[in-house]
Write a protein that binds this DNA or RNA. Structure first.
Lengths: 133, 133
DNA sequence: ATATACACTATACTTTGGTATAGTGCTATA
DNA sequence: TATAGCACTATACCAAAGTATAGTGTATAT
């Protein structure tokens, strides 16, 4: 475990309250709710990878399909629709012939960047750890 | 959106590569895999709330049940088992009568702290935003 | 004698997430 | 004329996630 992470954890621990379990539960109710709110929006195998790609630039539908291995067209369009509904992704239609459709991150989508960074870091470290064993 | 977050996003943008979509996809393959690895372990409504509580201290089974509203005993014991298998949580049995069982975060579980912080922050901000509209 | 706490397990069920496959209407290319 | 690309939608299906309810064995409290 690297030093920066250790520091972050120590800092985190210093904020903890030292109380019996039931009081801790009371104290953290809002935080638990917040975690569940986030998870509800970000849930599933596909949403975060889609957002991570869109962080870089607009992508067309078929480009996303290539970019996210094993996703089926049904899942891709469903997930894009969900993300649009939640204001994270914007859909743009160019009325050329044939139609071009582009998806880009909405400003609100960029608020997920810190989360994506953490997901990525943890996943990379986790893979390293598994390999070592 | 607050300044710290804006800065973080700007920093993130400065790391982005400016290339056509297919090259971006190529470049980010590992990161996308990492995100999916993490999501696989953390997936579902219950795992992160459980871990977040256990960040504070050991909890007994029945305390967790109280701490995580609406979870059923079946889900709680299943999720705890999954987390134990992945080395994130440790289960301790005190052989008093009746038996006491405690669950605590393993060292490895603490590596999820930065992620939990981001999940919590985003959820809290999201709720604020929804309320405003 | 009854109820309750504890730490679960069992069974049956519903919902959601995800797969597999085919098809649409348009156009450009061989 | 046939094939492929584009951006999907439709249908059927399956598996995993989650819910609802009941029950187990031991022990303390009323």
């Amino acid at each position: 475990m690297d030093k920066a992470l250790k520091d972050k954890i120590e800092e985190f621990k210093s904020y903890r309250i030292d109380k019996p379990p039931l009081e801790i539960i009371e104290h953290y109710r809002k935080e638990l709710q917040a975690i569940q709110d986030t998870m509800e929006i970000v849930q599933g195998r596909w949403k975060m990878p889609i957002i991570a790609l869109l962080c870089n630039k607009e992508f067309r539908y078929s480009e996303l399909e290539k970019g996210i291995p094993k996703i089926t067209p049904r899942m891709l369009s469903k997930e894009l629709k969900d993300l649009e509904i939640n204001g994270l992704v914007e859909r743009k239609v160019y009325d050329s012939i044939p139609v071009k459709v582009s998806y880009k991150l909405a400003d609100y989508g960029y608020t997920l960047v810190p989360l994506i960074i953490e997901l990525t870091n943890w996943g990379l470290e986790h893979r390293k750890m598994i390999m070592k064993r």
